[in-house]
């Protein structure tokens, strides 16, 4: 179907973008924003096409319903946030590595033989408007935490002695975690309301729920560490990394290692 072709083109464009960033000084500065905008538009177009094609098949649902769709949406959220945070990305390595992250996710999602890419109908449990609110808020959160993770990693690898880059990184990190925390909370709460209407209980300590709570606690510690205890530097960078590992486990680990109510996502 058309959406598959568009997703492949989008993946290729991400690749071109990264190659240009690596080898061309011009893209690195002047044309970077516009180049990203082009790739992002294609990505958006592919998502919309997939949405429309699901109606042609008679299923009609947003592309937020299975593992493949979650991956391409995750990459979309990362690129979107990179664009929105453009002003704050005075430390371009964050932006570059975020785009590299989107590229890797797109390659995995669109080329891996182990991933089911067909548009599938929604099982009864997923037939709800809460699907849109719940999945989109969660993935905006995951993408923000990915940016925070990059800030954490780059903090450890930055050239020593330059306190200005460190403070820029910390600023981006702080912004990412703030956005991520608000959206993760929104994701958990919309999930709880949905669970109430679908399963009859807003909280049942399902592994996915529990791990999202663990992730939430880690980022709550990040926020309080900085606001109350005045933590900076290494401590916060380390927490960003730990927090994102928890995100990864919530996203992938729970699906593949633990069984539970969220089993549609595998």
């Amino acid at each position: 179907m058309l959406n598959e072709t568009l997703f492949l083109i989008t993946t290729f464009l991400y690749l071109v973008l990264i190659v240009l960033i690596l080898f061309s000084e011009a893209t690195r500065k002047k044309y970077l924003f516009h180049s990203i905008l082009v790739v992002f538009s294609f990505h958006t177009l592919a998502l919309i096409t997939r949405w429309l094609e699901s109606y042609e098949l008679g299923y009609g649902h947003a592309p937020l319903s299975n593992y493949y769709e979650s991956l391409v949406f995750f990459a979309w959220c990362i690129t979107l946030l990179s664009l929105l945070l453009k002003k704050n990305l005075r430390y371009p390595s964050v932006l570059h590595s975020a785009l590299a992250g989107s590229l890797l996710i797109m390659i995995y999602a669109n080329l891996s033989p182990s991933i089911e890419r067909d548009i599938k109908p929604l099982v009864p449990a997923l037939q709800s408007n809460w699907l849109h609110f719940h999945v989109s808020t969660c993935f905006v959160a995951y993408a923000s935490f990915f940016l925070s993770f990059l800030c954490g990693i780059l903090f450890f690898f930055q050239s020593k002695g330059s306190s200005s880059t460190a403070s820029i990184l910390e600023e981006i990190n702080w912004k990412s975690v703030s956005i991520g925390f608000v959206f993760l909370t929104a994701g958990i709460l919309t999930g709880a309301v949905w669970a109430h209407y679908a399963w009859g209980s807003y909280w049942s300590w399902d592994p996915k729920e529990t791990w999202s709570l663990i992730t939430w606690i880690i980022y709550a510690l990040f926020l309080h560490g900085r606001l109350v205890k005045g933590w900076t530097g290494k401590k916060l960078a380390l927490l960003s990394v730990i927090g994102f590992l928890s995100v990864l486990f919530t996203y992938f680990g729970v699906n593949f290692l633990l069984s539970g109510l969220h089993s549609y996502a595998t």
Partner: peptide
């Protein structure tokens, strides 16, 4: 609470 929750899932 976080550590106990981890136990509760593994």
């Amino acid at each position: 609470i976080a550590a106990s929750s981890v136990l509760g899932t593994i």
